[in-house]
Every structure is written in C-alpha cells, then in structure tokens.
Write a protein that binds this DNA or RNA. Sequence first.
DNA 1: TCATTATTGTATAAATTATATACAATAATT
DNA 2: AATTATTGTATATAATTTATACAATAATGA
Lengths: 241, 241
Amino acid sequence: MISLRASDHIPQLSIDCVIFGFSQNQLKVLSPKLIFKGDFWSLPGGFVRQDESIDQAARRILEERTGIKDIYLEQFRVFGETDRSNLSFWDRLTELNGEAFVAEHFNRKELEWITKRFVSIGYYALVDITKVIPVKMEADASVEWYDIQNLPPMIMDHNQIVAAALVSLQQNLDQKLIAFNLLPETFTMNEVQQIYEVVLNKTLLRSNFQKKILDLNVLERLEKKFTGKANKAPYLYRWAQ
Amino acid sequence: MISLRASDHIPQLSIDCVIFGFSQNQLKVLSPKLIFKGDFWSLPGGFVRQDESIDQAARRILEERTGIKDIYLEQFRVFGETDRSNLSFWDRLTELNGEAFVAEHFNRKELEWITKRFVSIGYYALVDITKVIPVKMEADASVEWYDIQNLPPMIMDHNQIVAAALVSLQQNLDQKLIAFNLLPETFTMNEVQQIYEVVLNKTLLRSNFQKKILDLNVLERLEKKFTGKANKAPYLYRWAQ
DNA sequence: TCATTATTGTATAAATTATATACAATAATT
DNA sequence: AATTATTGTATATAATTTATACAATAATGA
C-alpha cells in the first residue's frame, strides 16, 4: 500500500517544485518517474500540513528530494485552473496498470482525496547540483536531472509550470543575484557567465560580464584554479556576503 | 443570518484583493468596514468556488465590489503562514458584540469553516477610480478609498498584504506599462507622471518623463484639454493598443 | 630555451541611454 | 501688449552599456 499522505493536510492545495541545477553548461530540472507502466514523469511536489507554512512545506519537500536543508527558494505563481486535477492521470494509470493493481496499492479514501481539483503553488529552487543526491520516494522508479530544453512529457500542467518558473528565474537572475546558488562554494567567472547565458538564452561579452559582476562587490577573489591547460589560469571566487 | 458563502468552495483557501485607485495625486486602496462594533476594516476578499478558476474568483470578487467587469489584475503572492486564521478576529468580534449576537447572525457550521487556517492568494487590481461605485456587502458598514499612506488598521495580515502588493506594483509599473489602468480613457501626461511619482515615491523630471513615455509609442495624442488656466493647455492622450 | 597557443584580466574607445538645463509656444490675466 | 504659469521639445552633460584591444599567463613543443 502506497501512502499519499493525505490526512492532516490542507485539502485541494498542493505544492510543485521546479528544482533547477546546472551542469555541463546546461540548466537542469529534477524530475521523478513513477514505477508504474506508462512513463509518468512529474515535478517533485506534495501537500501542506496543517501545522506548517507553505514555505516550510516547500522546504520539506525539497529536503526529502535532495537531502539539502538550506535551499534557495522562490514562490513564483499559483496554478488554479478549474480542470487542474490528476483524475485523467489516474485514469490513464489505471488503464495501463489494471484496476486490481491500483486497488491493491492505493487506499480508496486517499485516492478520492487526491483526485479532487487542486490549486498548486509553484516554487522554484536553485541548488548546487554536486551536493544533491536525488532521493526516490516510495513510488518512484527514478529521479533524474533533465535538460530544460529536453524535458520528458510530464503529467498535468507540469511542463507549463517549468516554463513559468524559467520566466520567473530569468526576471530575477540579475536583480536578486541568485545565479551563485546554482554553483559550488567556489567557482570561476566563466561558470557564472555560462549560467547567465543559458538562463537568459543569449551570449554575453566576456570582458563586460566580468567587469559587471566584479563591480557588484559581492564576490571574494580566492587563489587561482589549476586547470592544467596551456593558458592563463582563472581565479576562483566565493560569494562574500 | 449573514451568509459566509462557505459551501461549494475550496476549503482553507481564500483570495484577498488590493484594489488600487488614483485620485487627488494619491494612491488609494479600497477597504470595506464591518457593521459590527469594533472598527473592523479588511481587504475585499472571498473564496474559490469549485467551478471557477482562481483568476475567475478574483474577477468575481472585484466585480462584486466595484461593478467593473474588465479589470487589470495581477496575482502577486500567496500568504501561507501557519497562524493565518481569523480566529482571533472572531474572538474579538464576539467579545465586543456579544455571543448571542454572533450566534444570532452566523451559522455555526459556517463559522467553523471560516475560522480554520486559510492560505490566501494575493491579487492586486488597478482601476479607473471614476468608474467605481463601491458596493457594500451584507455585513459592510462602509466601503471607502483610503490613502495608501494612511490606511486604517486592518484585520489579520491585511496591512502587510497591501505593503507586498505595493512592492509588486512598483516592480511592474515600468516593465508592464500598467499605470494607464489607473486613469480614465483619456488623460494628460501630467497625470501619468503623478502616478509614477506616487507609486515609485520619487520625483521625476517632467521633460525627460514626457520624452520617455512618448518614445514608447503606446499612446495616441488627441485634442488639447481645456483647463481654463492662464497657460498652455496640455494634450490629452489615450492608450493606443 | 623560447616561440606558440588559448584563455584570462583589464583597459580603453564607441555607442547608447539617462539626467539636467534651456527655451520657445501657448492660454489666460492684467 | 506685457505678464504669468505651464507645456512641448531641443540640446548639453553625465552615466552606463557595448565593443574592441592588448598584455599577462600557463602549458606545449620545436
């Protein structure tokens, strides 16, 4: 029997998290896939307990999924269309896996609770991908990073939620100086620029970018990074607030 | 008996609307006051019916309060702290008006529904204040415009919600070109500048402001406005999209 | 050892945008 | 017809953004 954790939660209200990571010059999104037949990908999500705030709920969900406690988190939009229920998802799941299978694995009352219309609060998180060890939940076959340009088809409106999160990230990137949350403790200027370029989807002039970031006075310059390459080694930097 | 319209709505989810208007060189916010003893001001709000989207719910609430159908609307934040309930408001109301009075005017089941913890979606609206005829609901003693700098103390966290709405408005004003929603069909450049100044809380140079707005190419210049004053008459403009 | 190469850090020039100042045009009023 | 307050626009100055240039560096290999 798989628990959906329905009791003692606010009904018809959910949280969906777009967890952004950065590696190999690509923006990545974490997405679990269910064990059942049918290739069901989704966003990490959950419900709000009566005794926790919505921000706490988002942090709990993120910690469950990534093992990281202090995560950069931003609430970016609520999704509240009338047809936002996962009823059609459950129908498809039942169709592919059999009614007996579903009846065997899920509590009927919880199924009723979870197939109602849900209003979902969208959060996005920025994580240092090297620190994340993706955690599979009870019903997950896998939890993997996908290029944002190459996401699998997800259930409900989850692909649209990712698109909206990206727009919000683009708007906040410069103003809130949050790019550094996607990087390890120390990093090179080139890595920062790569994030800006992949998030904003445009190339930037290296010389001007470096000047702009340094002029912000938010980074501390450390020792040079050994690259082994036949050229000048770049400095390492650290967020200095 | 006063209806709280609880049934057939999503439980523990509410909508609060910050309705902005502009007059006498001041940014105004619409706030109803309850008929009961105790000076209870609040934001116009309501609940989400099972058969309407959250945006539709916000529009319904706005139309109920202002009589206007096509309103500029922006969802800006969700308020979801654990202690967000109006239990203390009801306690105070009962204290001041008597238990018998409350028992007489409110259905016990509805009271139970409405005093739970609520997660509230904050919307702000921009209206042409001259078009609004504020509508009193069943339990309202008044519905009036208050200077945003001089708001009455409101129930729960409603004053904070207004503050958050203003921050969001400030961020969006230039980017989304929404100031014109606060003005009548036709307006002078000076009126636009007054809105910018009062929203951004800083003075702007008239000459540069006029150039900037005209260079956007979003306004149509109409005839001159008769002012009767002993100086050059300003042009009237209209949003030209 | 010392050109060669790719990349980094920074300086400077050019273009664009923002801010400040100036001034003629206008619609009453005296 | 001179005066006044305000409007519309032009121009000068300052600041910022964008483009280009170049020396410094860390290997590589003749």
